[in-house]
């Protein structure tokens, strides 16, 4: 079933990169679009780049996180645990034991994908539920519901699995002239 497919996919994925399109639909129906790309090496290393309107580059080497905000010309360095609870990056690069942090449930096929529902076990995360859509056993899209019945939908394309990615990708060197804040 989908839960096993997801687990299998994550277990056999050492590295992943893709482009993504993100749409946030608020309860008022207003939508906000963004796009970007990400690179990751499991566990723990990722670079998640948002283009307009967020213009942020989030890099993690597994120990610390660099949040580079291009509009603000500012880099905030945070310890990894404090930063990202159940964000898309944390799920894709997390340890393989999703069952530890989420209740997993296979959902019926919909819109051409087999879905897995991940309901966080801890109440104080920012998401009420996350759904991952698999196509041919591979992660194709994600939906994240927050506590304000607003949904973030992310679809992936140009996905490359287990292609070599240099570890340099996951340490960030702040550009000259940028404010650096260490938390």
């Amino acid at each position: 079933d989908s839960v096993n497919d997801l687990q299998k996919y994550l277990n056999e994925t050492k590295s992943l990169s893709a482009n993504f399109n993100q749409t946030v639909r608020s309860k008022s129906g207003k939508t906000e679009n963004s796009s970007g790309q990400f690179y990751l090496i499991r566990p723990g290393k990722f670079k998640w780049i948002y283009k307009q309107p967020y213009n942020q580059e989030i890099t993690s080497n597994g120990q610390q996180l660099w949040l580079y905000d291009i509009d603000l010309a500012q880099v905030t360095i945070k310890p990894i645990n404090k930063a990202l609870d159940a964000s898309p990056a944390a799920i894709l690069t997390g340890n393989n034991n999703l069952a530890q942090n989420f209740n997993l449930q296979s959902l019926p096929t919909k819109d051409g994908a087999n879905w897995v529902a991940l309901t966080p076990k801890s109440k104080d995360g920012s998401f009420a539920q996350i759904r991952i859509g698999l196509v041919n056993g591979a992660i194709d899209r994600m939906e994240l519901d927050d506590h304000f019945n607003q949904t973030t939908m992310i679809s992936f394309n140009k996905v490359q699995k287990n292609a070599p990615i240099s570890a340099q990708m996951f340490t960030f060197t702040p550009p000259a002239g940028v404010d650096v804040i260490r938390e």
Binding site: Q22, V24, S34, D146, Q150, T152
Partner: peptide, 28 residues
Amino acid sequence: NQSDTAQFSWVAAKQQDQLILSSPFGTT
């Protein structure tokens, strides 16, 4: 050395304002 960044939307009507703070992932 504390820095917080959020996306915001501010809607001002005659006698009421609504401020929504959200993260780049879209979570409110």
